[in-house]
Design a protein around this nucleic acid. Structure first.
Lengths: 157, 157
DNA sequence: ATATAAAAAGACAGGATACTCTTTTTATAT
DNA sequence: ATATAAAAAGAGTATCCTGTCTTTTTATAT
């Protein structure tokens, strides 16, 4: 039986780098046993990302301590137990900054409950759900939900 | 009394062009009486967009019949009565295509109710609200809601 | 008819993002 | 100690999006 990661968001909510980062984290979580390291090559192949490009991204995630690495023979990337607590939001913040928390699409001067824009309240609710979703879903909870089968992490088409 | 358009979405849900397009449509709707035409210069100034850039966008909106224009002296852009039925979704589709209706952030092979990804159902609901919001809010309803005051369409900061 | 005012169209410039290639560092095994 | 395998780092390329500048078309007023 298979499941698929997908449908999390639409359009360009995340940058490509961020997409790859999320996929890579999930991929490593699925593959790595304690003390098993996964190589860049394996990750790139597994998620369908350009090798040197995902390398940069892994470096960044490593610098920010969202994952860990060891150089040299038998080296590679791995997650510690604590790393499984990383949320989608954590990854997004590292890769794309916190612009997702910014309020205004239109880049307009601030609106407020007192001076609401036409969709202020409507959107506030949607946004709350969106942020709650990326904050409460962690690599660990993904991994649990996905115990049942393999994940297809390669890019559509 | 003032109100502000704002808070519709976050981050880069829409391209800059799309933001400007939405602002321009709202601006024209506020300004134009039947048979009153608004010039590019006025629109650019009013929404805080580069003149030649917004010109391109207005051309595109015009080609797609979301607004109308007349050349020459006393020419400019205007909305017909029918144009007030244009929804946010219509504008977004013209400017950014329908990628917002695509299912997968991660660009992954499709997930389905049978093979749901870890956040499939959770996101489905959010997305439904998001799409419903951009589809049911039209330039006309905005204009009604905003009858009470001027709108600040200029970019924050 | 002509001048003029406006949009339409075309071509170009800069910056950001995505992606590639090469060199350096470091840990391990022999 | 040396060779090797892996990540880290650096530099370069390409494409897209945003924005600018110039020319052309067209409608109007005189």
């Amino acid at each position: 039986m298979r499941s698929y990661i997908c449908g999390i968001f639409s359009n360009d909510m995340f940058s490509k780098s961020c997409e790859y980062a999320i996929k890579a984290m999930i991929f490593i979580a699925q593959k790595s046993q304690p003390e098993t390291r996964i190589s860049i090559k394996e990750i790139a192949g597994g998620i369908g990302a350009p090798e040197h490009f995902i390398a940069k991204i892994l470096q960044e995630l490593s610098r920010k301590k969202l994952l860990h690495s060891i150089k040299g023979p038998n080296g590679g990337f791995y997650l510690t137990k604590a790393d499984y607590k990383t949320s989608l939001a954590d990854i997004v913040k590292v890769m794309d900054g916190d612009k997702i928390y910014n309020v205004c699409v239109l880049g307009l001067k601030s609106c407020s409950p007192k001076n609401p824009c036409p969709v202020h309240d409507e959107y506030k609710e949607i946004k709350k759900n969106l942020i709650s979703m990326i904050e409460k879903n962690t690599i660990g909870t993904f991994n649990q939900k996905l115990h049942s089968g393999k994940l297809h992490l390669k890019t559509r088409n």
